[in-house]
């Protein structure tokens, strides 16, 4: 396949950026999107140009490092991560636009690389169970009903890639935040910190400059792990419940 790529190039956080056009040829339909970019980068290096910077690591759809907006869709036309998107979903001769995640809370570092450390701070605000190493009770001491365990798992699957933020017209991080809130709220282990967790995480989410949720559902349509819209609703309910209970936070 031969393709025309229009890729956002931006030398650094404070520099101006622009869409830049590249032609690539000899692309196999079995290549992943990132392997296609590897091919471009190998060409660029051989020509003495700087390759396109993009985050990637596991390349099997689980680490959440990769992510770019491809033809206006976060992670491209398939509901998966960019590394698991294959070129067979494009046609020969196509022009493909590639842009970084766009959000105030995700400033561009270089080219397609953005800074998602805001997500880490949201987790640090309460996305955990406080349990000192070695102090845990016997694992079977607290049974967890299978449906609750399944709900917890479904939400714990979030890989923190940020596609939800990239796709949301408001750059909202509600789906990311709610996935962790719901994961831990579903389990008895998460109960003691249930109220402080949701209040602190939502507070940090807002402080980081993400927008609010307008229930467009765009986040769930791009989420590679299929975190459902009900996750956000449940977090809203948890937030209201915690506020009603006095709104104490740490």
């Amino acid at each position: 396949m031969n393709l025309t790529l229009r890729i956002w190039r931006q030398p650094g956080p404070d520099s101006e950026g622009a869409m830049t056009t590249y032609e690539v040829s000899g692309i196999s339909p079995d290549m992943s999107f990132l392997e296609m970019l590897d091919t471009l980068n190998e060409d660029l290096i051989e020509r003495g140009d700087e390759p396109v910077a993009f985050d990637h690591d596991c390349r099997e759809g689980i680490c959440g490092a990769c992510g770019m907006v491809i033809n206006g869709d976060a992670h491209g036309p398939e509901r998966t991560t960019t590394c698991q998107l294959h070129m067979r979903h494009f046609t020969d001769g196509e022009t493909i636009d590639v842009e970084p995640w766009r959000a105030a809370a995700f400033p561009v570092v270089k080219d397609l690389v953005v800074d998602r450390s805001a997500f880490d701070r949201i987790i640090g605000a309460g996305g955990y169970v406080t349990v000192a190493t070695g102090s845990a009770p016997e694992a079977h001491a607290t049974p967890v009903a299978k449906p609750a365990a399944d709900t917890a798992f479904e939400h714990a699957e979030c890989i923190g890639c940020g596609a939800c933020v990239a796709a949301c017209p408001n750059g909202s991080a509600m789906l990311f935040t709610s996935a962790k809130v719901v994961h831990l709220a579903s389990l008895p282990q998460g109960a003691p910190e249930r109220e402080t967790r949701v209040l602190d995480m939502v507070g940090t989410m807002d402080d980081e400059g993400f927008g609010g949720c307008t229930n467009t559902g765009m986040c769930t349509t791009v989420c590679p792990k299929g975190i459902p819209m009900s996750s956000i609703t449940t977090m809203n309910r948890e937030f209201l419940r915690a506020t009603r209970k006095g709104g104490g936070s740490r």
Partner: peptide, 22 residues
Amino acid sequence: VEIIDQCVAQGVPFAREYGGLL
């Protein structure tokens, strides 16, 4: 054996049976 206890307490959603046990 301690690892499993620790991880369950952290809220790691291990697979469970209908009885609620791991």
